[in-house]
Amino acid sequence: MRDATFELDEGQSVAVTGPSGSGKSTLLSIMGLLDSPTTGTYELCGQDVTHASRARRGVLRRDYVGFVFQAFHLVEHLTVLENVLVGLTIRGCHGAQARGLALDALDRVGLGGKDSRRPLDLSGGERQRVAIARAVALPPRLLLCDEPTGNLDSRNSQLVVELLHDVTGPRTALVLVTHDEAVARSCARRLAVHDGVVQEEGA
């Protein structure tokens, strides 16, 4: 990445757009602590994490970051509820508290009563809702979504985008990587990536 200087405040939403191969996924990987920048600095929630060790990045990712992917990444042999519980377990939440948070998250995404179903029994839009519930059951400070509507039809795409904005709390920053103009317009800000250069449109 080059010239990728920007700040994202809590509660803000930003769309990241650009052609395939432009660097969007690299930017998302750095923001999600899956990779480290070779130059420059990256601060997450006031902490300089540029040179954090792999172990430290794992802890910060667990505590601060949520992910929603285009391919859902659900565990097919687990129920809907168990898929959400996996995310909570990773974050150190167990037992009755975890179950309550998981059921509440499923209610918020419109899947109340479907907690015992398995992913293969659900539509694409419903599976994406499970992935969203897993990401927000404990609200992250940074919610990163990589083409979350890429596998959905236009109706489900609109519903999922509306849902992402609805379930994002006042302290959660939302980042949506997308090729979809309608999805990009739903965000308050837009970052355009081209050949590794990041520019804020309208800035």
Rank of each mutant, 00 (worst) to 15 (best):
S13Y: 04
P37Y: 00
G21Q: 02
S29N: 15
T5S: 15
G32F: 04
T39N: 10
L8E: 10
S22L: 02
L34Q: 05
A4N: 13
G21S: 04
T5C: 12
K24P: 11
P37F: 01
A15C: 04
L27W: 07
G23T: 07
L8A: 12
T38G: 08
F6D: 09
E7W: 00
M31T: 09
P37Q: 00
S13K: 03
A15Y: 02
I30S: 09
G11P: 12
P37W: 00
G11D: 11
S20N: 06
A15G: 05
G23A: 06
T39K: 14
S29Q: 11
P37N: 06
M31Y: 07
E7P: 02
D3Q: 15
E10H: 05
S36W: 01
D3P: 00
G23F: 06
F6W: 12
F6A: 11
A4S: 14
M31I: 12
G11F: 00
T26P: 05
K24M: 11
L8C: 13
T26C: 08
G11I: 09
M1S: 09
L33Q: 03
L27E: 10
G11L: 02
M1G: 07
S25C: 07
G11M: 03
S13V: 08
T17E: 03
G21W: 02
D35H: 08
D35P: 12
L8Y: 08
L27S: 09
D35N: 12
F6Y: 14
F6E: 05
D9W: 05
D3N: 14
G23H: 08
S20T: 11
D9G: 14
T5M: 03
K24T: 11
E10S: 14
L33D: 05
T39R: 15
L27N: 07
I30M: 12
E7C: 12
P37A: 01
